[in-house]
Amino acid sequence: MFEAKLQQGGLLKKILESVKDLVVDGLWDCDGAAITLQGMDSSHVALVEMLLRAEAFEHYRCDRNVTLGMNHNHLSKILKCANNDDIVILKAADQNPDSCSLILESKNGEKTSDFVVSLVRIDTDQLGIPETEYSAHVKMSSGEFQRICRDLSQFGDAVQITCSKQDVKFSSSGETGKANITLTHSATVDKEEESVTVDLKEPVDLTFALRFLNLFTKATPISDTVTLSLSQEAPLVVEYKIGDSGHIRYFLAPKIQE
């Protein structure tokens, strides 16, 4: 059987919030080591990959690999019933389960709610993500990245990200004019979560749809920092660490000059 007990149900709520607007139906692959999810948006422009290792759970048992086809809107309805400090227990049968049980327990043990979510059949293309050497890595405050994406959305549909030497510049333009926001590599680091790190091998200059970046920033509550990995010939990677026990990575194909 598959059984996973998460002490802080708030984490599962945050994970779901960060994927559900991008991927409606997702395959949650469970094995002895971790739960993983990979799903593409319907236009095949963006992809989300989530990894949550067994050590994130207070109790984790997966006797045989099992794949749970989750409708994220249905799962979200259940998790809306959970408080952030509720314990969440996921349970499913080993072989081709058609449903998954969720049990919510209040911290003081005085309230227990149980739900059964019907699983869905999902025929999806799984993509092979190659190992890539990126030309630039930018690590920054996740809140600052969210702010920049939101602010620039007022000016245009796309953001041009330019990395050179110790700067990263975010630019957007439209009918109202042009907006540029430049962040410089932090000279001193007092608080890691507020500092900016630009690790550059080669300059990059790429343009991305802001609509998707704004969806990626739904993961902001998961981590204080975010890392952007860029190369001229590869999709952007936006990564939020889930503590020491996993990550959410978003991949976004660039806009290209024809």
Binding site: V45, D125, Q126, P235
Partner: peptide
Amino acid sequence: MVNQAYLGEYFGDQ
């Protein structure tokens, strides 16, 4: 002219 690339152009289907 700016077009949107697709992920399949970079990642192979498994």
